[in-house]
């Protein structure tokens, strides 16, 4: 269930303003995607584990376990991009019959794979430590999102488990009609036979929820008040600023160590070198 991904606790990361947390985490994610390079996304990935461990008492291992479904996708992407690398390159480091593997290709491939992991890692850490009610409140209060939109997001969020339950019901009900044993059509027909009742029930549930929200006065006034307050505290400013500074310092340090192969810089250098 989607809601259960949030794990209630009272840690620094949990207490952080949800929008401030978005700002900080986006900064790390942005840094990891700016450079087509292995070192930066790897550093950012490790940083996400450190943040989770030190600020939310989430062990890196637990975070990795959550990452495992995405790990498969990341490995797939790494292999694909390594094999089908078409950019500037030196000599192949490995030849498997007609397939060549270049160092640059391996770098680009693993960089892409690591970036996927990095984005996923921060996202999981975010959802894990962010109360959905506070998220909506701070999207409205700090990010100035129109409240109708924020609540539409929340309603969609509430809907995921409801639809999952409905789908399981429909599948079971049709299974007892032995729909799965019927020959012609197969998978396509099965999807159609699930989707019509699911659509009907989804629309009906959405209508009911909309009426229930209207009945409670949702949208009758241009401005509403908020029970859950998410004011920005000193810690929120400190964490956001520290994140930006940390990103900058990390990039600088990697650059000094010569580990930074900036995507644009690298291309420019190679173009220059080729001439």
């Amino acid at each position: 269930m989607s809601v259960s991904l949030y794990q209630e606790n009272d840690t620094f990361l949990h207490r952080l303003n949800p929008v401030a947390k978005i700002a900080a985490f986006s900064c790390f994610i942005l840094a990891s995607t700016l450079y087509l390079d292995v070192a930066v996304p790897f550093a950012m990935l490790v940083l996400s584990w450190l943040i989770g461990w030190s600020l939310a008492h989430i062990s890196p291992l637990a975070l990795l376990r959550r990452l495992s479904p995405i790990l498969a996708a990341a490995v797939g992407l790494t292999i694909f991009n390594t094999l089908f690398y078409g950019g500037p390159r030196g000599d192949p480091i490995l030849a498997l019959g007609p397939i060549y593997i270049w160092r640059e290709g391996l770098e680009v491939g693993s960089s892409i794979g690591l970036r996927i992991l990095c984005v996923a890692s921060y996202s999981i850490l975010y959802v894990w430590t962010t109360d959905p009610g506070r998220l909506v409140a701070s999207l409205i209060q700090q990010a100035r999102m129109p409240y109708r939109l924020a609540y539409a997001i929340l309603a969609a969020y509430r809907f995921v488990p409801i639809l999952q339950r409905e789908l399981a019901n429909i599948q079971a009900a049709q299974q007892v009609r032995a729909v799965h044993l019927r020959g012609h059509g197969g998978l396509f027909r099965r999807i159609v036979s699930y989707s019509i009742p699911l659509l009907v029930s989804g629309i009906r549930q959405a209508e009911r929820l909309a009426i229930a929200m209207d009945a409670r006065g949702f949208g009758t006034l241009p401005e509403r008040t908020y029970y859950v307050r998410t004011p920005l505290r000193l810690a929120d400013y400190a964490f956001s600023i520290a994140s930006i500074v940390a990103c900058g310092l990390l990039l600088l340090a990697l650059g000094e160590l010569g580990l930074l192969h900036g995507f644009l810089i690298g291309v420019a250098e190679r173009v220059a070198g080729a001439q």
Binding site: P132, Y151, R158, I162
Partner: peptide, 13 residues
């Protein structure tokens, strides 16, 4: 007003 379906009238987490 209170409706029949407990699932479809609650909004908040």
């Amino acid at each position: 007003i209170v409706f029949q379906d407990p699932e479809a009238q609650l909004v908040m987490p």
